Amino acid sequence: MKWVVAAAAVTLGGCVSVSELERSHETLDVMSGKSPREYADCIKQNLAKTRETISEEARDDGLRLIVPQKLGAGPAALFDIDKRGSGSTIKLYERLNNFPLRLGDVRTAATQCISGS
């Protein structure tokens, strides 16, 4: 039953763009001792089994990762990773961020990569 509700929400939710994700409230706003490159590589490694190829864009002093949806087109999540001292600041924006049954692989990877591997 949960999957039926989740599938309906994905279908009815429509597509969202990167600019719409940027304007939404972040679901995670943290600092890490890892460099932007180390953190981005950790995210890519953790999501390699559950997501298609993650897009990466270089920014002024960091990186942006765009995570594709599992079902449908468009981004599911956006990571803004900026250099800060010897580490980085991370902001995560997720599609359906207020939907309690959303897939948890992105959030799990984001929190595991803060200090873990």
Rank of each mutant, 00 (worst) to 15 (best):
W3H: 14
V4T: 13
A6W: 11
A9P: 02
A9L: 12
G13C: 10
G14H: 03
G14P: 02
V16S: 07
S17I: 03
V18S: 07
S19Y: 10
E20M: 10
L21Q: 08
E22C: 10
E22H: 12
R23F: 02
H25F: 07
E26P: 14
L28T: 07
V30A: 12
V30L: 12
M31A: 15
M31C: 11
S32I: 05
S35E: 01
P36V: 06
R37P: 00
Y39M: 02
Y39L: 02
A40Y: 01
D41I: 04
D41S: 13
C42Y: 05
C42Q: 05
K44P: 02
K44E: 06
K44W: 00
Q45K: 15
Q45G: 12
Q45P: 00
N46Q: 15
N46E: 15
L47K: 07
A48C: 11
K49G: 05
R51E: 06
R51D: 01
E52H: 14
E52I: 05
I54Y: 01
I54W: 02
I54R: 03
S55I: 05
E57F: 12
E57A: 13
E57D: 13
D61L: 08
D61P: 02
D61W: 03
G62C: 01
G62H: 00
R64E: 14
I66S: 09
V67F: 10
Q69D: 06
L71F: 13
L71D: 11
G72S: 11
A73I: 09
G74K: 13
P75K: 02
P75W: 02
P75G: 03
D80E: 15
D82I: 01
D82V: 04
K83C: 00
K83L: 06
R84M: 11
G85P: 07
S86Y: 12
S88D: 09
T89E: 02
I90T: 06
L92W: 01
Y93M: 04
L96D: 15
L96T: 06
F99A: 03
P100I: 13
R102M: 06
L103C: 08
G104W: 03
A109H: 08
A109P: 08
A109R: 08
A110S: 13
T111C: 01
T111E: 04
S115P: 04
S115M: 10
G116N: 10
G116F: 09
S117F: 09
S117P: 04
